[in-house]
C-alpha cells in the first residue's frame, strides 16, 4: 500500500484539509438535520472517507468531470458544488440543485463538472466511459473520474466499463473507495481479491492501492492516474483503503451489527482529519481559524436552505423532456 511522501507543499495540503473539514461539517450538519426531521429522503454520509474526495479532486482541473455514488456529498463538495444549493436539495427546497427531485442520492452540479451522484450501484462507470469518449472525440485533454465502492467492483458494469476504456484508451480514472463493507457484507467475503486494484491487470491498465485515510497519499496516486489519462494513455484503477465511521445509513449503528467496536476504534484513530493535522503540525489557533471559516459557510448554507421555498405543485411535471 502506497503511503505519502513529503513532497507536497503546506499550502496545498492545507487546502485539502480545509476541503475535508468542509465535507465533515456538511455531513454532520446533514445528519443533525435528518435527525430533526428536516431532510426529505435518505442520507448516506461519507464521514471517515473525506481524504478520498479531497485528495482526488485536488488533482483535477475545473473542466474535468466527476461522477459519484449514493454516498457522494464529499466528492460533490470537493469538486466545487455549491453548499447552499446542495443543502437545499437535501431539505426538499425548490432552490436545490435538482429542484428537490433528486435528493441526496442524485446531487449534481453540471456547471462544476459534477455529472451526478448515481444511486444504482455500478451505473456511473459506463457513463463515465461515455464522458471520457466525448472528451476523446472532442480532442481535448479533459479527464473523467468515477467514484465507486468495493461492492460496485463486483458489478458487471465495472468490468464492461474498464474494458471499454482500456480498448479505446479513454481518459477515465476509476477510483474505488474500499470502505470494507457493501452495506453489511464484508469485501473479504464478497470479493475474490484482497486488493481490488489488482483487477486492473485484467484490463492491462495501471492499478494502485493507497492509504485512504492519508489525503496526501490519495492526492499523489490520483495525480499520477489523472496525468496518465490526460496523456491519452487510458484508464487507471486506484483503490483507497478506507472506512465509514457511520453506518450505511441511519438505522444502521456505527458498530455492533456487522463491525466490532475494536475494529471501528482502530480506524477512528486514523481519522483523516487527525492524520492531516499531524502532517501539518497544526496549532490550536490554526485549527480554530479553519473551523471558524467552515462554520460560517455552513451557517450560510443552512440559512439559505431554511429560507428557501418548497416546490410548487407544477414542478412535479417539469424537466421530463427537453
Amino acid at each position: 500500500m502506497v503511503k505519502s511522501n513529503s513532497g507536497l507543499s503546506r499550502k496545498r495540503l492545507g487546502e485539502m484539509y480545509r476541503t475535508m473539514l468542509r465535507i465533515r461539517r456538511f455531513e454532520e450538519t446533514a445528519d443533525d438535520l435528518y435527525m430533526a426531521g428536516k431532510v426529505v429522503g435518505g442520507v448516506h454520509v461519507s464521514i471517515g472517507q473525506e481524504a478520498c474526495s479531497a485528495g482526488v479532486c485536488a488533482a483535477l482541473r475545473e473542466d474535468d468531470a466527476v461522477l459519484t455514488t449514493h454516498r457522494g456529498h464529499g466528492h460533490s463538495i470537493a469538486k466545487g458544488t455549491r453548499l447552499p444549493e446542495m443543502l437545499a436539495e437535501l431539505m426538499g427546497k425548490v432552490t436545490g440543485l435538482c429542484r428537490s427531485k433528486g435528493g441526496s442520492m442524485h446531487i449534481a452540479d453540471v456547471s462544476k463538472g459534477h455529472y451526478g451522484a448515481h444511486s444504482i450501484v455500478g451505473a456511473n462507470m459506463p457513463m463515465a466511459a461515455g464522458i471520457g469518449l466525448a472528451y476523446q472525440l472532442e480532442g481535448k485533454d479533459r479527464v473523467a473520474v468515477v467514484f465507486f465502492g468495493d461492492g460496485a467492483s463486483n458489478n458487471g458494469a465495472f468490468h464492461e466499463a474498464m474494458n471499454l476504456c482500456a480498448i479505446w484508451k479513454l481518459p477515465v480514472v476509476f477510483f474505488c473507495e474500499n470502505n470494507q463493507y457493501a452495506v453489511s457484507v464484508p469485501a473479504e467475503y464478497s470479493t475474490s481479491v484482497d486488493d481490488i486494484s489488482v483487477r486492473s491487470k485484467g484490463y492491462d491498465a495501471p492499478g494502485l492501492t493507497v492509504d485512504g485515510m492519508d489525503v496526501a497519499a490519495v492526492y499523489e496516486a490520483s495525480r499520477e492516474a489523472v496525468s496518465h489519462a490526460r496523456r491519452g494513455l487510458g484508464p487507471s484503477l486506484v483503490e483507497a483503503k478506507t472506512y465509514r465511521f457511520f453506518g450505511h445509513s441511519r438505522g444502521d449503528p456505527h458498530y455492533g451489527m456487522y463491525r466490532t467496536k475494536e475494529e471501528w476504534e482502530g480506524w477512528k484513530e486514523r481519522d483523516p482529519l487527525i492524520v492531516c493535522e499531524k502532517m501539518l503540525k497544526m496549532t490550536a489557533k490554526q485549527k480554530k481559524a479553519h473551523a471558524d471559516a467552515v462554520e460560517a459557510e455552513i451557517r450560510e448554507a443552512i440559512e439559505f436552505a431554511e429560507n428557501s421555498p418548497e416546490p410548487e405543485e407544477s414542478v412535479a411535471l417539469e424537466d421530463i423532456f427537453a
Binding site: 459506463p126 464522458i131 472528451y135 464492461e160 471499454l164
Partner: peptide, 14 residues
Amino acid sequence: LGFTGAAVGAAMAG
C-alpha cells in the same frame, strides 16, 4: 450494459 451506459454519458457531455 457498458456501451449503452457510455452512450448516455456521451449524450450528457454534448
